[in-house]
Design a protein around this nucleic acid. Structure first.
Lengths: 340, 340
DNA sequence: CTGTTAGCGCATTCAC
DNA sequence: GTGAATGCGCTAACAG
């Protein structure tokens, strides 16, 4: 293989010379244009393989002013689960389509950070972008991107109209499912610990509230937490002292685990004294004791849908509808009817 | 802003015209070349801002035959923790250096999958690559990449000489630490559940074995598992029946959690009857009951080091030494002296 | 200090 | 069918 001292990657001209044809002919063969004599095709292909030729994508992008690189712009998340899996979903779908992905992480939702991230993303020859938005700030990014760039959003937030097309998780449905389930178990009401929503109303919270209202149950004040388990633990400590709380729907699995640990440390039984439910469906929560009832989300599917949407936009389709993934309630040991 | 019907991104010529100078002058201003009259600099900068000019990176890459895009090639992992955090470490470091990352996931370690992944990575104008190798197959990728491309490896595996420079986690030290600690607690020996190693000997296993041998302790047969918790659970079921097992060092946290759950389901007390230790240091394991003793690894640091190594190679430095991250034992509730 | 010229690798006109 | 010429946007060399 390549082992000469100063190695220069072969270009079309090298292939053309090796095959004894002209540069355009090689180009035609490589791009599948018809009207090339079969024997020339064979000679060109042989030369390509012989030299290990690879098209120079910079030149290609320049010439065609299009690219098979798409950018993913994502908020930094402490919880890696949803993020990593959505990414995997996008990457897998992109790979099948022969496209590459680049990723840019947003360090915060401040304007300056947004601008820097957008600059960086745009510093590559990208054909489109996917904005990953599980928390806030995604809209800011979408707005900062040039209008000429195809953009798709992916995430759980309920979206105001007018934004880019999106692949969404129907979080409201998930919040409703788990709340209705807990009410059905006989709880008078369900408390809710919410993660930081960045000003917007979380779909999880919407669904929870709607379910309570529909059932005529009291809607207790929302408890505000960070997304991590330590914050959940702190809420667990507070809940431990209250006997009006019999069921808690937590904004994500980490919070739920933190709450459960705090309750356990204080000798409060889950689900005997309090039922706890999470949101996300991280694989590990099924091993917990008690294993966690939670709302599972198929993040890989979400990622795949986002890519497919973008892919269609890239092909010029314009009347795209947002794609919605339904989360699914998984009942485990951490929830039960209230103590009689 | 841009809202005309057919929008064409401004190019240098547009800026030049707007500023009333020539194209190269604009280029000089943008690239910080000295020897440009201050008033021209000002006019150019104004025009740039006015038009919202962004350099076309495809043209730039083509002209300079270099790129500020680097590719990360990673094996698909079920556990997202180490992967996601290493990625974040790389991305953060890259972002500070003004570079972008693209990522390609290896679907398997078969030759064909490797070739496809390499092709895809190389289909972008990348300046270098980082191969993420926590399991096997990384060397295959490194070999398939052109020799002219700067490559750095990152991961935990002990590396045969001759490969690319690498940022490494000293897994052997971690395995040794945890094993020595358990022996010090009074265990006669320490059992070990190993993940799939893809033919190589895991550093974790090496360190474990060395520690036992140094202490003159018996070296029990290694138990082979997958990396996931369910596989761990199965080993837990088997261990539950054995009273010669008093301490188990698991290849990762997932396995450890699986083992603990299996033991708990059978009424076996951890750490009273058996001590369990993990490897990785996922944040959630501190919330477990009992909380898990484990070997923490700083994956973000690993990623940052890998990028820095690559960055230096990109700047032409050639005598680079691999960089080693020391993992750290964190003792929690899941380990204790054996029952007397 | 500034503008003119040239060419990176490729795909696409256009002649033949 | 095929080859010769052109230009995508940019920067490095050259002249002035």
């Amino acid at each position: 293989m390549a082992s000469s001292k100063s190695y220069r990657a072969p270009v079309l001209a090298d292939v053309a010379k090796a095959a004894g044809v002209s540069v355009p002919t090689v180009s035609r063969v490589l791009n599948g244009t018809k009207n090339v004599a079969p024997d020339l095709v064979a000679r060109v292909n042989a030369a390509v393989k012989e030299l290990g030729y690879r098209p120079n994508s910079a030149a290609r992008s320049l010439r065609l002013s299009q690219s098979n690189l798409i950018s993913i712009i994502a908020e930094a998340t402490t919880s890696s689960y949803g993020y990593a899996n959505t990414l995997r979903g996008i990457e897998t779908a992109a790979q099948q389509a022969g496209m590459s992905i680049s990723i840019t992480i947003l360090s915060s939702d401040e304007d300056e950070a947004v601008a820097r991230a957008v600059d960086l993303a745009l510093s590559q020859p990208i054909g489109g972008a996917i904005v990953l938005e599980f928390r806030a700030a995604g809209m800011k990014v979408a707005r900062a991107l040039p209008e000429s760039l195809p953009v798709v959003a992916a995430g759980g937030a309920s979206r105001p109209p007018g934004g880019p097309v999106a692949a969404l998780i129907d979080e409201a449905a998930g919040g409703r499912q788990v709340t209705e389930y807990l009410l059905r178990q006989g709880h008078r009401t369900v408390h809710h610990i919410e993660g930081p929503t960045g000003g917007k109303v979380s779909g999880r919270t919407e669904g929870w509230r709607a379910a309570l209202q529909d059932a005529g149950a009291e809607v207790p004040p929302v408890m505000n937490s960070e997304w991590d388990a330590v914050s959940g633990y702190r809420w667990g400590e507070r809940i431990a002292g209250r006997d009006d709380v019999t069921a808690v729907f937590c904004g994500n699995d980490e919070i739920a685990l933190g709450v459960m640990r705090a309750l356990a440390d204080r000798g409060i039984d889950v689900p005997g004294d309090v039922s706890i439910a999470g949101f996300d469906g991280q694989p590990l929560v099924s091993l917990w004791r008690p294993s966690l009832t939670t709302v599972e989300q198929d993040f890989e599917d979400l990622g795949a849908r986002a890519f497919n949407l973008l892919s269609q936009r890239l092909q010029g389709k314009t009347d795209l509808k947002s794609s919605v993934v339904k989360p699914q309630l998984v009942v485990r040991e951490s929830t039960a009817p209230p103590r009689a």
